[in-house]
Each structure stands twice: as structure tokens, then as C-alpha cells.
Design a protein around this nucleic acid. Structure first.
Lengths: 219, 219
DNA sequence: TAGATTGTTAATCGATTAACAATC
DNA sequence: TAGATTGTTAATCGATTAACAATC
């Protein structure tokens, strides 16, 4: 219950990056790294790395640096990757199907428990071993399966109502793929993925680049 | 050639949000809005809106506010949505197929010119009207089609080499879906989409939430 | 021990917010 | 004109970077 002071969003968003770089280091068989060396690889300052990590604990050792394996485990724990999450996909269109086939998530502890849709065209279809069920059966499903996260891949117009349905069922995490900033009057955590926003940013930078004002990211 | 002072990344990333909210306002038939009113809708300060917009020009009118339609057009122009972009998808797996079927992009001026893969299993297949071609034919294709953006949806291990191939062909924008921070020694703009990072952030916040320290985003 | 590198405090920088004169 | 709201400058806040004493 001791409420530790909350960590800033900027730091939280960097955690998966640390996770990835440490994972790579492990693969390379490197078992010790200094903040200085890691900073060179990641393209951020050593200071920032030490500050970030010290939000969660003193994982290093003076004069030595960080043990890659133990730091990797710490970051994994912080990110909650030791936990198992049950997920469902709502919307079995192209994006839903792509997510259902994404094996990376399973590897990180996010396992796919169900897929739901409202269209008879896809209900009953099997995607990556999971049969698409009628969205009307979601509530009953959640009652028996303890679902943590709903990945929402329905068309724009259905997003809010589907998200509310999921929240009402007691699902606590929503991963929203519609181009809207989903906010609900429920006690849920929402993470928005805005692919079209990302593409527009790319387009903007491309224009800036072509119009000759700004450099690309040659390094 | 007059190099205007460059706009911060934080502002650039908000542009697509403005675009979306203005687009909604248009749909609602609202044709005038003050920074105050828009700030309430978007959940940011009116000050920030005025500061952001004034990076690009004085689009408002004292005593009146902003004309929604003209502001929408300005933002569209800033984002380069008046331009037509030719895109190719590299990697015709599930994610590549999902992107190929995303009609939103077409609507915003990003048109799909080709899909490439290295697997005989998918080469020749038709996705949303576009036939998957052999990746070996990419260079010849780019020579005749002026491709602006490559959407890279190949497995992790192939990402760097495929990205380099695209850059060598002269493609200036890369949209990378692999969980790595792609950096190349080419003069290209790279935008990384890290779905697994986003999911991990959701997982982190879910944990924080459950362990009782932090509020969800009830509003 | 001497050298290296952390954890942490202090300084700097940039982004956000507040305030208000300009002006429609 | 009076009222409203912008554009813009100044103040504040938070995040990043630098510095260094602690310590392995």
C-alpha cells in the first residue's frame, strides 16, 4: 500500500526499449555492460539510463556496471512480463487476424484466449487455432476465463460501444487500434495505437526532408 | 530555401491529433471553434493549442477563434496530405496483408503501388487488388514507379537487409514494423511502429493499476 | 589499493502553461 | 464600441544532462 512516487510516462515508454536492447545483449553473449557502453548503443545519454533505472532500484554496481542478465530480469519484472495475461481480440478483420498470428506476444506472456466478432461471415472461423466466437458471448466468456486485455480491432464506428462492452465485462486493459482517443467512464487502462498518426508523421517528415530544410536520420 | 526554425517532435506528433479532432468537428457540422473549446475536447490546454498552431502560422482570428474548415485544410497541408504518396509493402505476411487492406491510408493520399515478398508461397497472390511480386523485382519496380514509402513487415531477422535494399533503391521513407530501432547509413526517414512496446506499456500500467498505487484513466 | 562506474544531487534545457497586449 | 479570443512574451514546470561523492 506504500505508494511509491509515480514514474513519468517518458521513462515508462523507454522501458520496452531497454528490454529489447538487453535482450539483444544477452543474445550476443554479453554479460556485463556499463551505462556508458549501453548509451552508445541506444543513442541516449548514460545519465538518462542511470536516472531511468534508479526509478526502480539500484541495479548496478559501482566500478563494474550492470550485469546484463540480472538487469534484463529486473526490467522484465518491472514490465510485468513474469505475469501471464489472458487476451481477447475483438474484431476478426485483417488487423485482428494479424494480431492473432503475432507469435511475439505469446512469447512475452500474452496469450490469446478468444477472438470475437459480430459477423456471421467470420464467426466459427479458426485463426491460429482459436475459433472466432459471437461477440454476444463475450460476457459469458469473460466470466469463466479471467480476461485481462481486449485488443480492439473493429471499425471506427463500433469502437466506443465495443470498448464499453469490454469494460462492463470487467476487462481492465484495452488496446485500441481505432484512430480515436478512446476514453471511457470506466476504471480501465487504455493504450491507443494510432497507425495512421504514425504514417502521417512519416509523411510530414518526408516533406520537410524533401523541401530541403531538415536532415534525414543518417547517422 | 529559407530554413524556418524546426518544429519540435512533441508538436509534430500532435498534428495528426489535431487533424482527427478537426475532421470530427467538420463531420459534426461545427464550423467555428475557439482554442478554449477545442482544448476541452482534446484534453490539452488552450495555450498549447495556440502555441502549436503558431509554429506554422496565424490561423485564427482574434475575437472569433478558428474556422474549422480552413484550419483543417491548413493542418492537412502541413501534414502533406495534399500530396500523393506511392507506397509499397515489403513482406506479405499477416501484418503486410492487414496494411494492404487498410482503406484509411488510400483515403489520405497514400496509395499502394506494390507488394513484395521472397516466398513463392505468396508471390503471385492478389491482396486487395495488388499482386504480390518477387522482392528481387523491387529495384526495377521503383525505377518505373517513383515509390515514396516502403512499409516493412518482414520478420525481425530480415528487417535490416530489406530496409537497406529499399533505401538503396532510392525509397526515402521507411515505415518499420519490426521490434528494432532501425537506423541506416542512408539518407532516409524512418518511422518505427513498435506494437510489442505498446503492449508492454499497457501491461506495465495494468500492473501498477492492480497493485493499487495509481489510478486508471477514468475521467 | 587504485580505477572504474554507479547512485544521486545540482544545473541546464526545453516544453508547457499563464498572462496580457493586440486586434478582430 | 465592447467583448472575445488570438498571437506572443514571460513564468513555470518537468525532463534531461552534467557533475561528483560514494563505493565496489
Amino acid at each position: 500500500m506504500a505508494s511509491k512516487k509515480s514514474v513519468s510516462d517518458a521513462v515508462i515508454k523507454r522501458l520496452p526499449r531497454y528490454f529489447r536492447y538487453l535482450s539483444d545483449l544477452l543474445e550476443f553473449g554479453i554479460n556485463r555492460i556499463s551505462s556508458m557502453e549501453l548509451s552508445k548503443r541506444m543513442g541516449i545519454t548514460a545519465s538518462q539510463i542511470r536516472q531511468d533505472l534508479n526509478c526502480f532500484g539500484g541495479f548496478g554496481q559501482q566500478g563494474y556496471g550492470y550485469n546484463v542478465e540480472s538487469l534484463f530480469r529486473e526490467i522484465s519484472t518491472i514490465l510485468g512480463l513474469d505475469n501471464k495475461y489472458q487476451t481477447v481480440i475483438i474484431g476478426a478483420g485483417h488487423m485482428g487476424q494479424a494480431l492473432a498470428n503475432y507469435s511475439n506476444f505469446e512469447k512475452r506472456g500474452y496469450s490469446l484466449a478468444g477472438i470475437f466478432d459480430n459477423s456471421p461471415d467470420v464467426i466459427g472461423m479458426k485463426i491460429n487455432g482459436v475459433t472466432v466466437a459471437d461477440i454476444e458471448t463475450l460476457e459469458a466468456f469473460v466470466k469463466t476465463h479471467k480476461v485481462d486485455i481486449a485488443m480492439i480491432c473493429v471499425p471506427y464506428g463500433h469502437t466506443r460501444s465495443v470498448a464499453e462492452k469490454a469494460a462492463r465485462c470487467g476487462i481492465k486493459g484495452l488496446w485500441n487500434f481505432s484512430p480515436m482517443d478512446l476514453k471511457l467512464n470506466y476504471d480501465v487502462i487504455i493504450e491507443n495505437v494510432h497507425l495512421s498518426d504514425s504514417l502521417m508523421v512519416l509523411g510530414y517528415k518526408l516533406n520537410e526532408h524533401i523541401s530541403g530544410n531538415l536532415p534525414g536520420n543518417r547517422q
